[in-house]
Design a protein around this nucleic acid. Sequence first.
RNA 1: GCCCGGAUAGCUCAGUCGGCAGAGCGGCUCACUCGUAAUGAGCAGGUCGUGGGUUCGAUUCCCACUCCGGGCUCCA
Length: 675
Amino acid sequence: MAAVTISLPDGSTRSLPAGATVADLAASIGPRLAKAAVIGTVDGVERDLDWTLADGDAVEIVTAESPRGLYTIRHSTAHVLAQAVLDLFPGATFAIGPPVEDGFYYDFSLPPDADGRPATLSSEDLERIDVRMREIIAEGQPFVRDELPSDRAREVFAAHPFKLEIIDGAAEDPTSVTEAGTVRTYENPPSRPKEHPPFAGYPGFIDLCRGPHVPATNRFLGHFELMRVAGAYWRGDEHRPMLQRVYGTAWASKADLDAHLRRLEEAAARDHRKLGAELDLFSFPDEIGSGLAVFHPKGGLVRRLLEDYSRRRHEQAGYEFVYSPHITKAGLFETSGHLQWFADGMYPPMELDPDSAGKGTEYYLKPMNCPFHILIFRSRMRSYRELPLRLFEFGTVYRYEKSGVVHGLTRVRGMTQDDAHIFCARDQMAGELQSLLGFVLDLLRDYGLDDFHLELSTRGEAEKFAGSDEDWADATDALRSAADASGLELVPDPGGAAYYGPKISVQARDAIGRTWQMSTLQVDTQLPQRFDLHYVGADGQRHRPVMIHRALFGSVERFFGVLVEHYAGAFPTWLAPVQVRVLPVRDDHDAYASRLADRFRAEGLRADVVHAEEKLGNRIRRAKLEKVPYVLVVGDDDVEHGTVGVNPRGGDVERGVAVDEFVARVRGEVAARVA
RNA sequence: GCCCGGAUAGCUCAGUCGGCAGAGCGGCUCACUCGUAAUGAGCAGGUCGUGGGUUCGAUUCCCACUCCGGGCUCCA
């Protein structure tokens, strides 16, 4: 029998009999690899284990723990989910079911209820689905690959309109291929034919799919958990039917699954909404309305510290501070284009000052600050010598966010932007953007975020963009070169721009690896035109300035929320609402404790005292739960020697520390903005 | 805006198959005076999210609304 020669990633080659598969190759390397192999890549393309190898193929065996192996496990689990739902809900049909980060989902449409609308899944249904999935897994159904002519596939999937759309190429499925004329399928034949198989000519379950898959349902699957059910629009389009989406997570082992579930718990424990209440930072009283926060004294203090530091840095960087009102007549937003492009995001107008006919003037709450800053620019003739003119405001704006999207402090209806508009000459734009990006990143690092990437949002095909192609191209180029100069990774986001211009957004990764959109830098040639802005150049002629819109925090509220989660509520000393808590051991140490707190406050530290009305242990416990950076315990020894017992957050207790030394230590930390 | 789920004391939650509402923590009072993550006892605190409907009777069943959570769409 002829042999095939296969090359491996380490550069070695192996000879196998003709007809050998990926699985045979793994077995020839070793029994452990044979067992661990989920799929293989052949010349870079992922293939099932039963794929027949050809002479000269370069093959890599993919194991369960690898990203590709996990992807396969999640993908195969999604198929099992689909089979289970189709089994349990006769008449149900299915759409797409790709693997996603940490798991998978599948979208379904259930047969109509008595009221004629498609039925929905409830969380109780998830338990039944879970049970059915485990039965299918225990059955050990193979995943059987096949290529069907499209005509034949249309017959097989006749009862599944979403699949027909995919076969016809009208809908995209990230896990399906619809090559001209044929489609690939994966069948899971059941051990016993189903009573009412929903596919013509197949006794069990079959799905359109590019693959590859695990060899059988009892290989590598089973370490999964269904997480939630949610609505999702077919093809992500809000004008199309709402499907029922089931999300799950799946891993290579029980230990990995458990570790993932623990990570979710940890993330929940640092949720800023939970910590906001626990640490008495802010709240969202129902009486005020959705997405409208109040900051309590401690949250207000932290917020003021964030803002104060930002203000100082902006002053040093040549920004000038302005203020503008919260409401304005409609005309301003007509000129700016907001009422044309952004009206959906604005609160409806108030009609004031009716005339004799009863017709009043419409006022709007501002959704953005830019038109106001523009009016400041336009308030008098500007010289090129004034440029770049950088106008900064902590500007509170209101946006009528759709009711389903508000989320803690990260998506609100009333927010304060650390907003600035830079008016510059066209030839200053590139340089200004570059130094601006450096300034942004530098400042974010001071707040403790240091892992970034950039996103470049450009104009898409849609109609929602104002202005000429040329202006967009210029602006986009300027942003791209500033981004390149930063050396950070740049992810494209076509179609993500605001109506008036492209933007770079800075995405920051927090302490547990989640990314948040923070700063935005936008180039705008539209508003200067709309407001007919100009300045007088060195040549004595009028020129049109370019505007750069930028916010570093994005919104103060979101930034605050992100920092709470980043630090898990344990703010660094410079931001902590209470930096030092003094705990006298007994009543007769009260006077000493109070003198210490006075001294600390005189040194510019935020210190308080909790007297001995409760046991020391409990007072320490409370201080720890409040995440106070320094708990000082003072007793007889300390009164006698002028020392303190230092119990630092996350560190070891140290007795008999001299007060001066302690003050110097903490003041140093605050100055360096660490810990 | 759409789909699913929820709202009971300041917080976390139990409970009522329709018949006067419960716990722990927290708060207050008293006692304890204590050296590094929960001392004990007592007291107060709820028109069971809001408004309608069904009913002899609704916190419980139905409807609408408000607010919250998880998604989709959208977004700082």
